[in-house]
Design a binder for these strands. Structure first.
Lengths: 359, 359
DNA sequence: TTTAGCACTCCAACTTTCCGAGTGCTAAGC
DNA sequence: GCTTAGCACTCGGAAAGTTGGAGTGCTAAA
């Protein structure tokens, strides 16, 4: 059922006013904000309708109206005006991305901080799990007791480890190991590194000291840990400034929930990069997020990997500004990390996608 | 001036009761807790004395007593009974340290989590800055446009970078570069890597493509970033459960302060590893910490580096348990990271050191 | 020096009062 | 039929008032 234009205007006014003030919105305020040419009484009857239809609700009789999740949903899907970023904002983001000399360990953390700063909500970043393989294998001989393992992964990440052992070996052994590993452990996914493969490699090299299994162990560890993507949060303290979290216990529960990266990874969903997903209150699967909203933008992290950057806040969130900012960051990240691959058409136009589940 | 034994017992009872209950402590409660054989009236007059001498204070007339910073200080220095860790606690710590396959990137973070869990206060870890040098230098040739730089640092950390350039070079060039760098860039601190050195290296190799400066740039970056030690916090949300942080604003300020690693690094002080430092309320230099306490244990991170692990909490903190736990963790870490070097005598006996500044 | 007794203080929790913003309803007007 | 002015009503929340109990300091006697 379609809402009349006037109802839409009123709903928009209520949502935007509530987002700004966190106070229930009354008929007079709606009038002031929407600029409609009618009386408060008319607005009141319209408000009562929107209330009946489930878009608004009253904290108690004789209070103003507050949007419901359904109301926010309609607002986000149809009523929200696209927020243009100011030049300062785009500049801040692009310069940050450019300026960063791409130290992959800290990049996502810094991006998270930037998102927090820009939106003043806690920000989270999630790197999708990858099916990495080893692209190139090297051992660097140091001395009779130690060598370095260097792995170049299919994602172009480089991992290494210094191995120091209580017995000695020759440079030649290391060279031979390096060659054998380079031919038999490259290009295969983690699950194909079976005990049999390790055994046969061991025999092929004539290794009697267990070097092979040490090295294979590192390969497996590297592939599995790079497999489960990383996740982090920043700016949790910002929640405390919001009136909806004046109860420390509420804040505590949410922050706790966010601080477990397992929970964050559960937010990973399907969707093309370029999407901005908005999950409003009860649309969230997790109980702890049921009266908060999450906005997630996904980016192309190169090599077919997707990553997410998002923020968490009260349902009363400035969706349009947040979505625009996150979308822009994700776009920049895709350019930075995604390499040559062209972004999907419409990238940057910001496609807001909601959850498909019934509410 | 020495306190009479009875006064000491009373002070201890007040501190310990207040730590446990967070409520001002009255004369009857002191009596119950201390087991002294006298009447409440006697205790009252003693309390009044301790009040006059600055060890205790009253939130208001006709309330019980609360320890002052001076009171806590005396308690920590002289009155506190050493807390023995239970077998479960020591077991939890040692097994965690043993179980950890020492992935240096995440080790300190995990240790921080452990400290939070054990003490239920926010935990922080700080790795001291190092003067690292390059111990060994390698370039791995991949294809005409790319190679990997591998640096073995004096701290035995290994750093690497994949370099991909828009022009091509031969495997031989890379080999030559590797040899030259390995001889001229190893063993020297960052400040000796001057433009002159880079220029002369460039000439020596006959490099006209700028490869030398790319590589030198990475070396410098690595040495300077490993130079400024890392810091991190975990478990900030735990503050919210404490009555002293029921005001979200207070919690917000403190959490914000802690989330800036610059501020954390400012906590680094002198002292041998093996020390446990306790900073009580106003003893803290930072304004934001003035009504909180910080307990810091330092550990030997090997190679002459020191690291800190600590927790932040209200002045009403269970100092003896916290100090014991942190001390034990630091001890374990020292053994894990500090390698062969023997711990200073008395390690594990837990030397509590206060701040030397006047209060 | 200790202790019992007592008057006094003051917070915290609970009620009560009061105000105003905002509603829904009704009846008149366009 | 939609809109609007008028009006009685509701309800939360701030302000003010009330009460009880825990705890104190002082005094005088043991």
């Amino acid at each position: 059922m379609e809402l009349s234009e006037r109802k839409q205007k009123i709903l928009r006014a209520v949502v935007e006013e509530y987002i700004a003030s966190a106070e229930p919105v009354g008929s007079k305020t709606v009038l002031r904000r929407s600029g409609l040419a009618c009386s408060p009484a008319t607005v009141r009857s319209e408000l009562a309708d929107l209330d009946r239809e489930g878009y608004l609700e009253q904290p108690h009789t004789s209070a103003g109206r507050v949007p419901t999740a359904k109301g926010y949903r309609l607002y986000v899907n149809e009523l929200m005006r696209e927020r243009e970023l100011t030049h300062e904002e785009t500049e801040a983001i692009t310069s940050k991305l450019r300026g960063n000399s791409v130290r992959p360990e800290t990049l996502m953390e810094e991006i998270g901080h930037m998102a927090t700063e820009l939106t003043s909500y806690p920000a989270l970043t999630i790197s999708s799990p990858t099916k990495a393989t080893v692209k190139r294998f090297d051992l660097i001989y140091l001395d009779p007791n130690s060598f370095i393992i260097v792995l170049l992964l299919s994602s172009d990440g480089v991992k290494n480890k210094l191995v120091r052992l209580p017995f000695s070996f020759t440079e030649n052994t290391i060279k031979r190991l390096s060659a054998v590993f380079n031919s038999s452990f490259t290009g295969i996914p983690e699950e194909q590194i079976t005990p049999e493969l390790i055994n046969s490699t061991e025999r092929a090299v004539g290794d009697t000291m267990g070097l092979t299994s040490v090295i294979a162990g590192f390969v497996i560890e590297t592939l599995t840990t790079s497999h489960s993507g990383g996740a982090n949060v920043s700016g949790e303290a910002n929640l405390l400034k919001l009136p909806e979290f004046k109860d420390p216990d509420k804040a505590h529960k949410l922050i706790n929930y966010l601080s477990d990266s397992k929970n964050l990874r559960a937010l990973t969903g399907q969707g093309e990069y370029g999407d901005v997903r908005v999950l409003i209150g009860p649309e969230n699967a997790a109980l702890e997020l049921r009266d908060s909203s999450v906005v997630l933008a996904s980016y192309n992290a190169g090599d077919g990997m997707r990553g997410l950057i998002g923020v968490v806040g009260p349902t009363r969130m400035d969706y349009s500004a947040v979505a625009a900012k996150l979308g822009f960051i994700a776009e920049g990240l895709s350019r930075l990390l995604g390499g040559g691959s062209a972004p999907p058409s419409g990238f940057g136009k910001l496609m807001i996608k909601g959850d498909d589940r019934d509410v």
